[in-house]
Design a protein around this nucleic acid. Sequence first.
DNA 1: GCTATTATGGACTAATTGGTACATAACACT
DNA 2: AGTGTTATGTACCAATTAGTCCATAATAGC
Lengths: 193, 193
Amino acid sequence: MARPVEIDRDDALRKALELFWRKGYRATSLNDLLHATGMGKGSFYAAFGSKQALFECVLERYHAASASATGHHTRKGLTALRNFLDVTMIKLAPAQRRRGCLLVNSVLELEGVEPQLHKIANRYLQDLESRCLRYLCDAQASGELKQALDPDDLAALTATLLQGLRVDSRMGRSQNQLRQRVDLFISLIAQPT
Amino acid sequence: MARPVEIDRDDALRKALELFWRKGYRATSLNDLLHATGMGKGSFYAAFGSKQALFECVLERYHAASASATGHHTRKGLTALRNFLDVTMIKLAPAQRRRGCLLVNSVLELEGVEPQLHKIANRYLQDLESRCLRYLCDAQASGELKQALDPDDLAALTATLLQGLRVDSRMGRSQNQLRQRVDLFISLIAQPT
DNA sequence: GCTATTATGGACTAATTGGTACATAACACT
DNA sequence: AGTGTTATGTACCAATTAGTCCATAATAGC
């Protein structure tokens, strides 16, 4: 009984994610978004309500994608952890370099300026630590990890390292440089055979 | 022969640093700066030329202050490294929490949006790695560091960890949590006695 | 084809942005 | 006191911002 929707909401969200990821929240203007998605203003506000609401959607999507990409770990122990770091660093970032991580970028950009968005990004980001913990517990159970190490402390350190790697990525460091850091870190915590 | 300057350039720079550090480059408006420094527009543009030029000044100051605060290491070896990380994390951030590091913040915020500023912040930030290297070489020479470790690789990892800590700081994690990560890291690279 | 209904795009707005121009205020030197 | 020189604040500007409004386009059911 009415005019049907023209836009592909999913596609628009992907395009928006792309923009926010590359340029940040504030530097991405409404015009940028309209142009990238091909929507008019009317449709945009009908579909998303506001720039902020759209960003919240995008954050959720990003987090969900990241969780699912690293979630089903077929491997075990430290290999799984290594794989996890690898996926988080590389597979998630489509093609272009210098993107880092949308959550880390947002936490730094929005603290003190957009408290609500900052809080959301912060919460999603903290998830990482608990995901690290799972891998580390696995690794310790299978004897790959030095027994003296506390998995909780180590998960915290690993999460911090991961954040550092994302800064590195945004600085333009190569995949190889990042991988080298990961390898060294893993060798530091591994039980020598 | 002419009207003398009223403003205290040094003080204005300090106030500007404060603002940029807390809110980021783009979120700090010219009005914010004028209000914080108490200058009028005329004086501002006479003194600094533009918002961007002022920010470049501020970055330089920040880097210089950070280098000098961590530069003269009275201690030696791993204690010096630990002290270095401590100073970088804590002493430099006046009072308030959740500031992280101006350079890290800027690198993430400005990549792809303000190439020139990004480049400057990037360069300053990379200095850290070489400073880490000095401490690590010291530590290895004095036998505190595991002999098998390559100081260059380790300096890279340490710099990455430091960046991660700065993200943690911006996330609002407590000093104690940060210190715990530092301690664990150092224990991982130290030669067991 | 008509109509009820909804999606759409563009005109519009008020606020804010960084920056300029310039009249004037405040001095140092004679 | 007068004058040359520089610092200062304010009025102004064009561009951009996120967001609103509404006439119109496009459809589904009849």
